[in-house]
Design a protein around this nucleic acid. Structure first.
Lengths: 161, 161
DNA sequence: TATTGTTATACTCTATAACTATA
DNA sequence: TATAGTTATAGAGTATAACAATA
């Protein structure tokens, strides 16, 4: 290892830590509060909103699969879907081929609410207006690389204590 | 407005949207799961861990203030603190000057756990290793500017439906 | 009167375990 | 036997409303 690499590594770690802490803080405050405010404006809970987003129109989803995507035990899905169904947003339908599974589909009403919700959630906060197109391009590129790296390193070998 | 500004605005919006959606996804998946895994490894709930982080050693904090920082109703703090106190991590102490308020302080055991927890939470994920020092510097600069903009625009006037 | 912390209540999410109906 | 969904249960977070002690 040459001197330049050592210095890069040392400086890089301090900066990487600042980046990471900034992302943590950004996620816990602004991002989280923005999501919570938007979701509650639709009278939904966070898991309900997440479920609704995962139910793409015209693509029935077995309850088991929804549990996997929400990363919670299958027993929770019953209640979450009960409440969505009580509001007429989704329906349980028999799945072809296996009479055990129930496929979830969004109703017309559900599609309407879902579209509105997703549009609102994805609306870009004004805080991004301060960046030039060039800077946005750079930021997007860097974030994409981090996202790709996260995919390849699911939880990280150093994840445990 | 000249043509170049219009084009910047158009392209910039599409890119800004991608950045925003990438941050949302990153926050909801990798970041959130990483936090959850770390916190549960300490046998804490998310609010408990957050409370512990907010209780700096040697700086007593009234329960009311903790509620404000956790952004939840004051009535919830009783239970959260009960559980932390039952584990000997924090203590309720009388506050000087006002006999109504109870000041929270971390015990020695709490400080030890808190230090370990914060160290673990702030440990940089390996996914950041792929960026050069120069790229990290750029990313940090851009994220800082967004963070500052978020501070100045608490929830955004377009926050409501 | 207003404020701090608590309690009572009700709801949702969470996991575990046991159950049913299928496969 | 194994799997999909449900139910029962217990614990934690959340908000609202009412309360005691204090300001």
């Amino acid at each position: 290892m040459v001197a330049s690499e050592r210095s890069v590594s040392a400086v890089g770690n301090a900066q990487a830590r600042e980046i990471w802490e900034l992302l943590l803080e950004l996620s816990r405050t602004h991002l989280r509060e923005r999501l919570a405010a938007t979701i509650s404006a639709f009278d939904l809970s966070v898991p309900q909103a997440h479920a609704l987003q995962l139910l793409e129109p015209g693509r029935p989803l077995p309850m088991r699969d929804l549990a996997a995507r929400l990363r919670c035990d299958a027993s929770n899905i019953t209640g979450i879907v009960d409440r969505l169904e009580a509001r007429g947003l989704v329906e349980r339908q028999p799945a072809p081929g296996d009479r055990r599974v129930k496929a979830l589909v969004v109703t017309d009403k559900g599609v309407a609410l879902r579209t509105s919700l997703v549009e609102r959630l994805h609306r870009v906060p004004p805080a991004f207006a301060g960046l030039s197109a060039e800077e946005q391009r750079t930021l997007l590129d860097l974030l994409r690389r981090i996202a790709v790296a996260c995919e390849q390193d699911p939880q990280g070998p150093a994840s445990m204590l």
